[in-house]
């Protein structure tokens, strides 16, 4: 009872502290100085039709590199922990037990298999579209990569894909991660600073080949995120074939 009262009192205190924020909140008619600079410079100097991309890849490019690094560390940790766990369960003893006792896993139905055969390529294509057009339409490397990973997940669930191509995933991760940093360094040498995309021609705004190196960076981010999340899914799922 005392505990509940304390919790209630705590909630009230937090509400009291936060209330002024809500009370003072009103819609601002104009943007701040920094946002105004982004709004005018983003399309003019960087040639990015989707302004969010200009901010994410260029103005806050270092943050994006940090996010990719965090994701890499997380996926490496998951693969390490669950990879060894998976190998532990795949002892002969567990295998026999799995065979004798039905695990309750049904094989995917024909509908699911056929649907996956039809949809998985489309999902992959959509993911590639999202990150290739990151500088033109909403979305970008992260979103496209996640879409691709969900396609991989669908293929696993439908049984069209049994083993993840670990070597391919590793190579993709290495190449895209190193490529991202290399492009950042090219920005130092050929343009104004780290991750400056303007060493490639800006092109005409709104075209596919425009915005300097922004599309290249987003393609690399998309491939890296897709490969990493596919690795996470592969590490987490239960080995039905074990």
């Amino acid at each position: 009872m005392i505990k509940r009262l304390l919790a209630l009192a705590l909630v009230l205190v937090v509400a009291f502290l936060v209330f002024p924020l809500f009370a003072q909140m009103d819609e601002r008619a104009e943007v701040g100085a920094l946002a105004a600079a982004y709004l005018s410079d983003g399309p003019a100097l960087l040639g990015a039709a989707n302004l969010v991309t200009a901010v994410v890849v260029t103005y806050r490019g270092l943050d994006t590199l940090g996010e990719v690094t965090v994701l890499f560390a997380a996926s490496a940790g998951i693969s390490l922990v669950f990879g060894t766990l998976g190998r532990g369960t795949r002892s002969a003893d567990a295998k026999n037990r799995d065979d004798s006792r039905s695990t309750g896993r049904q094989p995917p139905s024909e509908l699911v298999e056929t649907g996956a055969a039809l949809l998985v390529p489309l999902i992959f294509l959509f993911g590639v579209f999202v990150f290739v057009h990151g500088h033109l339409t909403p979305g970008g490397g992260f979103q496209g990569g996640v879409v691709i990973a969900s396609g991989v997940l669908f293929a696993f669930l439908a049984g069209t894909l049994h083993h993840a191509p670990h070597r391919l995933l590793g190579v993709l991760e290495i190449v895209s991660g190193a490529g991202y940093v290399a492009i950042g360094l090219l920005g130092v040498w050929l343009a104004l600073g780290f991750l400056d995309p303007r060493f490639l021609p800006l092109g005409e705004i709104g075209r596919l080949f425009s915005g300097g190196a922004i599309p290249v960076i987003y393609v690399l981010v998309g491939v890296k995120v897709g490969a990493e999340l596919s690795g996470v899914i592969d590490a987490m799922r239960q080995r039905s074939e074990s």
Binding site: N50, V52, V56, T89, V130, P138, G139, G140, F142, Q143, V146, V147, A149, S150, L153, L229, V232, I233, M236, R237, Q238
Partner: peptide
């Protein structure tokens, strides 16, 4: 904010759910 919406839909509602489900099935196993 369509960019954020895409991220939230793909990661928050799709991948996180699936990863939780996988984890839960492993725990039960």
């Amino acid at each position: 904010a369509p960019d954020v919406a895409m991220t939230e839909a793909a990661i928050g509602s799709a991948l996180t759910t699936v990863v939780f489900l996988f984890a839960w099935s492993r725990i039960r196993e």
